[in-house]
Amino acid sequence: MKAGISISRGALLELRKKLELVKRGKEILEMRRDQLIGEAYRLLSKVEERRRLEERFASILREAQKTYLLMGHRGVDSYSCLVKPPKLRLVRRSLLGVIVPKVVELRRPDPGQLPDPSLRGLITELWDLLKEFIELAVEETMLELICKEISYLNRVVNSLEKRLIPQLEEELRYIRIRVEEQSLEEFVRIKKLRDRLRGASYEY
């Protein structure tokens, strides 16, 4: 119990308001936490696609490896000069109050100058897959950031629930009892004073 608490009806009212505000804050934080958990579950189902992507990557990789061997390392290097590189931009956005990254594709790689259509096809396929991997990486990062936020919110809600609210309730109870005691004392004092005043009037 905090020392130096002022015991008065005003303090009691003030404390009641404070407790109500803390409880409402806790509820809001719980609601935000639930929304973030829902978002995390949604992202989790997307992140689970990694296996499918990896399988697709393995099959494309086989083709790429064969191409690498058939063309030779310098052949692949010289062919890659003919491909215009892609352009990406990393931006930040807010998701339920959490700042998460987002990758925006400004330009796809352009293999139009490659003479071999199968090479062009391979590059397009590889880029599509790479883009999916980038999106997956962004979602994994989002999930990580959301999980961090959830754990932070959990700590806040727990401290409110287990520490601040019981403490305020205890203070409130203490003040209420003290205020009641005071009012009882007041009542008794008034009663005694009234009896004394009545006794004096009988004497007259």
């Binding site: 490896q65 064969k66 690498y68 058939l70 030779g72």
Partner: peptide, 20 residues
Amino acid sequence: VYRVLVGKIAEIPPEIIRQT
């Protein structure tokens, strides 16, 4: 010979190297 060795450097499976 080049393909076998470069394939081995790039850790490409032998069955893929054989195809080339």
